[in-house]
Each structure stands twice: as C-alpha cells, then as structure tokens.
Design a protein around this nucleic acid. Structure first.
Lengths: 173, 173
DNA sequence: CCCACATAGTTAGCTACCTAAGCATATTCA
DNA sequence: TGAATATGCTTAGGTAGCTAACTATGTGGG
C-alpha cells in the first residue's frame, strides 16, 4: 500500500476539494475552494517560515515588526499606537515590549503628556540589532519572491490585495 | 499633526520598503521586498481570519484541518500520519486530539498493529460537525476569492505555488 | 464640583504552534 | 538473545496571538 506522495505540509489538492464538496451535495466551485484552501495553507507556512527567519536573529516576527515600526517613526511610540499600526491587540504589544525590554532593545518611559500612558523607545542596542540583521533580512526577503519576474510580482501584488479585501467575506456576520 | 491614513493591520508600503533599504545603504529591490512583506502581512491576516471563521463552529483552524483530514482518509489515522499530512509536529497533534477528544469529535484507540501507537477515530459527532458546517464553510471560502475571476484565480494559484517554493530561501542555511 | 464614562496599560486565562526531553515499545544486529 | 537504536506519543516549557476583566488616569456634563 504505497500511498500517494501527499508531501506533508498540508497543501490541499483539487481532488480533495471536489470530494469534499460532493460528499455534502454542495454546489461550490472546487477551483475557488482550492484557491482559498491553498491560500490558508500558504499563509500558515509563510508565517512559520517567518518565525524561523527572525529566530535567526533572536527575534520573532512580532518583535521584529515592533522594532521596525518604532524605527520608522523616530524611535518612539505609545503601546496603543504600536498596536494600531501592527494590527494586534494592546495585550499583545504588552507581551512583545516585555520581551524586547528584557533584552534591552526597547525601553518604557512614562508619558509626559498622559499620566496613564507609556512611551516605548528604541534603544541603541535595538537600533544596532536592526542594522545588523538588515543585509541578510532583505536578501532573504528578496529570495522569497525570486521565483517571480518583476511583472509577475506586480500581478501578484494586485491579486493579493484583492484577496485580502475578500477576507471580510470569511469573517463578517 | 494629522498623520497619514496608515490603516492599522500592518500593510507595509513601497515607501517604507524604500526608506528601510536606503537607511542601511543596501541594494535590495524595494518592490521585491514589498511583495515579500505584504505576503507575510497577508498570511498573518488570513490566518487570524481563519481562526475567526472556524471559531464560529466551535473549532480552530488546526482542529478543523485534523477532522477534515481524518474524514478524507476513512475516519482513521495515527497521530504521526496526521502530523505528517497536516504539516505540524506530533506534539501539536497531541494537543489538537486532546481538545477534540474532550468534545467527543474524535476518539483514541490503541493500535492493533503497533503497541506504541494510537489510532485517532472520527466519531459520529465529529462527522456530524463536519456536515453541519460544510455549507457555510464552503460558501465563505468561495467568498474569500470572489474578488478574482476564474482566470485570475488560476494565475494566482500558479504564482502562489512559486512563492511557496521560495519559502526555502527564507529558511535555508 | 463630582460623577459617569472613556481610554491606557496590564493581567489572567485560553489556543496553537514549536523544540527538547522522557517513556514505552519495536526492530536490528552482533 | 541481549543491547543499541529507532519510533510513537506525551509532557514540559517557550512564544505569539486573542478576549475579558481590572486599575488608574482623563474628560465632559449636570
């Protein structure tokens, strides 16, 4: 019983989609379902790969994004602003800042304008970290899309944006 | 100081990519970097949306994928096989099965062939759950890609596959 | 002026994912 | 056959993300 390839990492096939749809007597378009399923599988894989990538530098995706966002805004931002621009909850920012602070890459200071607020500051060590990882980081990022020509990348960017717009269909009431 | 839109959810811009590359005097292609960054951001968003979607049915993405994979294989599979086909670690499968077993959607039975092994079985309740959520699930999956024509979806599938092949560039030594 | 309500941040508790280490059972081979 | 190795699964401990609840400070209205 040599089972078919089915190389782990959960990439669904068109046949799987067809069978699933048929099993319940539905009328969905198998190709559309396949694209959606592949997209979700790809999203998961890219996310994991990102963690491995940033892990090389002793960071996680979330921590890198926070540092990078901080640098893009003059090295100083409130946790709420960070949560907003990173698209995560404030609780998540608390956790990310906790970790980064422990490693000395950012620091917290009380806000001078709002007694409730903090400001998160990029430290010199944090800036150094970003500088150090930049060459390899950008090089690998380019590698990720090196299988596409420049024109294909433009097409992909367009299609991806339209799919992202469709995310609402997945979550709306 | 009305700051530019910058609508949360962390979609990076071409300008950001350019500035970051320039800051360190690198030669990377900003467009390629942008595509990679957008892809990672999209992956995260789709992943979260998926959790919301499956959460509607009292499941998570991982739990749904496990149930679905089980059904696609006659309702019976070992944890190791599940880990392989889902592309996650065996430890993760242990956790997913723990949760699903608690809810009566799967059951564990000792393997008859291997004294070390288990077999995970899809219960009647598990099969019912899959049947119940199918119509809405497939409908929303279609909705996710409804912004693309059939031809565009085919193109997207091709480009996505080539990007997935590039994941290796992100993680290899 | 004070109370009600809004906002900033943290904490607690959940899920998913990982790696590494542990335990039990199989298998291989000298 | 007995020891070394391989395999199956679980456990322990880590990170990231979420929501909900809590504390503290700000703000606005009667």
């Amino acid at each position: 019983m040599t089972q078919p390839p089915e190389i782990g990492s959960g990439a669904p096939t068109l046949d799987q989609a067809r069978r699933q749809i048929a099993r319940y007597g539905l009328t969905a378009d198998p190709q559309a379902v396949l694209v959606a399923a592949r997209l979700m599988a790809a999203g998961a894989r890219i996310g994991q790969a990102g963690e491995v990538h940033f892990g090389r530098f002793g960071l996680s995706t979330g921590r890198y994004r926070l540092l990078s966002d901080l640098e893009d805004h003059g090295g100083e931002k409130s946790p709420s602003q960070l949560a907003q621009s990173l698209g995560v909850s404030r609780a998540t920012v608390t956790g990310l800042v906790d970790g980064l602070e422990r490693e000395g890459l950012v620091a917290r200071r009380p806000s001078t304008e709002d007694g409730r607020g903090n400001v998160v500051i990029l430290t010199a060590r944090g800036a150094d970290k970003l500088r150090d990882l930049a060459p390899e980081h950008f090089d690998r990022m380019q590698g990720l899309v090196s299988g596409l020509t420049q024109e294909e990348r433009a097409t992909f960017l367009d299609l991806l944006a339209r799919v992202v717009a469709g995310i609402d269909a997945l979550t709306r009431d």
